[in-house]
Amino acid sequence: MKDMAMTEAGLSPLLRVEGLAKRYGARIGCTEVSFDLWPGEVMGIVGESGSGKTTLLNCLAGQLAPDAGRVLFDTRGRGMVDTLTMSESERRMLGRTDWAFVHQHAQDGLRMNVSAGGNVGERLMAVGAQHYGDIRDKAIDWLDRVEIAEDRVDDRPSAFSGGMRQRLQIARNLVTGPRLVFMDEPTGGLDVSVQARLLDLLRGLVREMGLSAIIVTHDLAVVRLLADRLMVMKSGHVVETGLTDQVLDDPQHAYTQLLVSSVLQV
């Protein structure tokens, strides 16, 4: 009864993760990961290289099959459903409607031989849009929102700079109004000034659209700016969780303290 009332009041998590684990042979990728993500919340996952962030994100997003655990998503049609046991067809449908995935390397998330407009329009066409003019208008609108000029709409991403490619990838992902966005090191590999611009843009979009997101990064500046809550990972384990400011300003776990201080030294 109480659960139902909470659900009706919109008080159900968007994503509920229970006991997620993934091994590579004897090596732990990630293990014993459990958390809730609430609508409109941005969760940051931080930790040094090799700590299991990408493994966890790929398991959450259905791109990697975990060995144990459940990933429950609040679907539009059926409420909380374990995305690991749903049919591949349903999971792929989620992947191009309610979910979005921003890859660290833009070329992994773009079609390099398709124009910017076609890249943004693909998700619209994937869900049945069949009016060229409408698709193009939406694509141009989204290019504008990620600060790519309209006259680049017919250019291919191969002609774009790294920062533009990443912004194009973001537009391509957000055009269908996803309810949950996964991002893996979205600012990784970019020049510092380009990173700053991208972060500002992401922060604007997150606020404007009320996005729910899970952002993986080794860069604490990214989560400081974007994340409401943090999960700190070490050797595949979550060692600390909490509100972003709390974790960064008053880290409890020795590893987090190290992580935070090493950033301060930089």
Partner: peptide
């Protein structure tokens, strides 16, 4: 198998765009 044919329209979109 999953009837995911959005890509076919991407091809036609590219045609018109170009």
């Amino acid at each position: 198998a999953l009837e995911e044919y959005g890509l076919m329209h991407v091809k036609l979109y590219e045609d018109i765009a170009r």
